[in-house]
């Protein structure tokens, strides 16, 4: 299951188990996330793909009764982000996230992007300006908003808001970005723009994307992990998963027999 062709490795999930209280939501997951590639997590609703994604930036720590065992090791410094000794704040400064629904803050476009820098105590205008512009350019939003950086983020369209959220996630120079079904609330044109964007972004940063949409996974990812009932069924190059999967279950899912 572990693919030896994945190199260099950005993150490594080692025998990860996760519990929502008594519910065993992730069962012994082992997975290698390659550097500067796009990994798609697919599977039917409730299979644990979003749960797995939210382990990477310790989002589960925000709620009581959530417990992990196992490791997620981040390379090159081999930090286990799930370790009790590692502050989740530090993890989230290295691994950022884009959510299912665009969720900009009710602040200006500029302040939305700058927020990740502000929480680090960066106040110098020139540094903020530079990072904000770079992040907005990387998110392919700069040309649309450069004349109204100080107007409210809510005035943007849904697709623009989601790209703003991507810029917010990029501004902190993350090593890994987690996308949690980023296009499920967007129309096809906005979706196409975001997909195009992930292609550009992977030149700079590693990406994990959860998606409900198998065509999307096939279009944009380099590797695909198929999950079912909290288990990782198959993980391989996207081309292989969608043409000749090695597991019967994977084949049934991608051919639409269930899901």
């Amino acid at each position: 299951m572990v693919n030896s062709s994945i190199y260099p490795v950005k993150a490594e999930v080692k025998s990860l188990n996760f519990y929502y209280g008594q519910v065993h939501a992730l069962k012994n997951i082992n997975l290698q996330i390659p550097e500067k590639k796009v990994v798609a997590l697919i599977g039917p609703s409730g299979c644990g793909k979003t749960t797995l994604l939210r382990c990477f930036n310790r989002m589960h720590d925000l709620y009581p009764g959530h417990t992990y065992s196992g490791e997620i090791v981040l390379h090159p410094d081999e930090v286990n982000v799930l370790s009790k000794d590692v502050d989740p704040i530090e993890v989230r400064m290295r691994i950022s996230m884009v959510f299912q629904k665009p969720n900009p803050f009710p602040k200006s476009i500029y302040e939305n992007v700058a927020y990740g820098l502000r929480v680090r105590g960066i106040r110098r205008r020139s540094i903020l300006d530079e990072h904000v512009e770079r992040a907005l350019r990387s998110a392919a939003l700069w040309d649309e908003v450069k004349d109204r950086l100080h107007s409210m983020a809510f005035n943007l369209s849904g697709g623009q808001q989601q790209r703003l959220c991507i810029a917010r996630a990029l501004a902190i120079d993350p090593e890994l970005i987690l996308f949690d079904e980023p296009t499920s609330a967007l129309d096809p044109i906005a979706t196409a723009k975001i997909e195009e964007l992930t292609n550009e972004l992977k030149k700079e940063v590693s990406i994990i994307i959860v998606t409900h949409n198998m065509q999307q996974a096939a279009r944009i990812s380099d590797y695909t992990a198929f999950m079912y009932m909290g288990e990782l069924i198959e993980y391989d190059e996207t081309g292989k998963i969608f043409t000749k999967p090695s597991k019967k279950l994977t084949e049934e899912y991608i051919t639409g027999h269930f899901g």
């Binding site: 925000l62 530090e90 996230m97 959510f99 629904k101 502000r118 929480v119 501004a171």
Partner: peptide, 23 residues
């Protein structure tokens, strides 16, 4: 204040107090 706004702030590395104070 919706939970997804808090999560958005936490996700860029804000502490609880920063989330409370800024959002």
């Amino acid at each position: 204040v919706p939970q997804h706004i808090r999560e958005a702030a936490f996700a860029v590395g804000a502490t609880k107090w920063q989330v409370v104070r800024d959002h």
